[in-house]
Write a protein that binds this DNA or RNA. Structure first.
Lengths: 213, 213
DNA sequence: TCGTGTGAACGAATTCACAGCG
DNA sequence: CGCTGTGAATTCGTTCACACGA
């Protein structure tokens, strides 16, 4: 039922729908229309319907979508109907912030291992996990069966971290280091570059007259 | 010389070019081709040339682009040839991580005020700034002439934070709260949603056979 | 009637391909 | 020759508009 190919932006919109549906559910709405979802997420109703129709026919004509039903469908599509074991490389401030971030746990992301190079940090206990030496990364990741890795190391060590994660068997990496990583084809890579986000703002403020699409 | 309109992705690529150029400069390369820049940033040479040509003719045929020159041009285009005063709302872990983040300072982003609601945190000193009460936000932001704001509050207080920032006179907001913010037309808004980044990964891992474009 | 689902139309962004200049 | 700059071609994503079913 999923299509052969899909745009990343469509996938991200699914996440937005899931969140909006959770809110509607909390508000006691048993049914929502594509118009509802659209204004909630800042897109058009047609886009909502198109996105959803890629995966099936979840709505009822004249009525809309059943809130809980659609939410479950989307969560299943996104793979959120299970928990995900995650390894975190880099126990700096950003790593700590992500480790604590409640939104992750709530969506079923479980950080099962944390790594750093700093002897000062190795051995410290964060909640249920003990910070381990990156030298142990591959074997620990394999032992803990982590499927995804998050890289918050400095740029210089990010590639090394990624390679160890791949060796350990992760299938996806979320990279916060400002550096292009090379990973095998089979491993999915997503980058978050905080500097670029701010620079996209400065461009807009520097060129108020330019429309950014 | 800037076009009437430009895609956000093109702007973000400019940031990537700037970083790549800095690296080439450090490596002593006085000239780079669109092919060099492309493989460094994971795009095509044609795209690099198209992006740059939107803002001028910076290259020499048969030679390529002068590294330092092009870097300066791009930094000017992005507005990085000056410093930016930034207000940070939310002194939690993520706020702390961003406050410390060296990449920001290096690009000329200066966090000149930090706010929180927690009486425990208010009054604490972070480097050069003292954490202040969000009640003071508007006047402090105005006094400090902050042009941009970063929101790292919980979702529930994010809209309020954004409104106070706008009242204080900021022209751009970078929002990390998982919540759609409404701001006046003239204010530029960028969102970073960490959960969506991870969910975009879980989708990919759940549908290995689906090509994500 | 209301709102979905979807082929068709549109528009935007990327890639092609080559003329032109150093 | 090598590589840029750019119109033309193409691909991709979004929006339109309406048939259809509840």
């Amino acid at each position: 039922m999923p299509p052969r190919k899909i745009s990343d932006s469509a996938v991200r919109r699914l996440s937005l729908y899931a969140r909006a549906l959770a809110d509607y559910q909390d508000a006691g709405r048993s049914t929502v229309s594509s118009v509802d979802l659209a204004e909630r997420g800042g897109m058009t109703p047609a886009q909502v319907r198109k996105d959803l129709s890629l995966f099936g026919s979840f709505g009822k004509r004249g009525l809309g979508y059943a809130t809980g039903d659609l939410k479950r469908h989307i969560e299943e599509i996104l793979g959120l109907d299970r928990s995900w074991r995650v390894a975190l490389v880099g126990a700096g401030r950003l790593g700590a912030a992500l480790f604590q971030y409640d939104g992750f746990r709530r969506q079923g992301f479980e950080i099962v291992a944390v790594f750093d190079v700093d002897p000062e940090k190795i051995g410290r206990v964060w909640g249920e996990v003990t910070i381990e030496d990156v030298d142990e990364l591959e074997q620990v990741v394999r032992r803990e069966k982590a499927m995804m890795g998050i890289v918050t190391t400095p740029a210089a060590s990010a590639q090394e971290a990624a390679e160890a994660l791949v060796e350990g068997g992760v299938e996806g990496i979320l990279n916060f280091a400002p550096r292009k990583l090379s990973v095998p084809e089979r491993v999915t890579l997503r980058n978050v570059n905080l500097t670029i986000e701010l620079e996209s703002l400065t461009f807009a403020l520097t060129h108020h007259d330019v429309e950014i699409t």
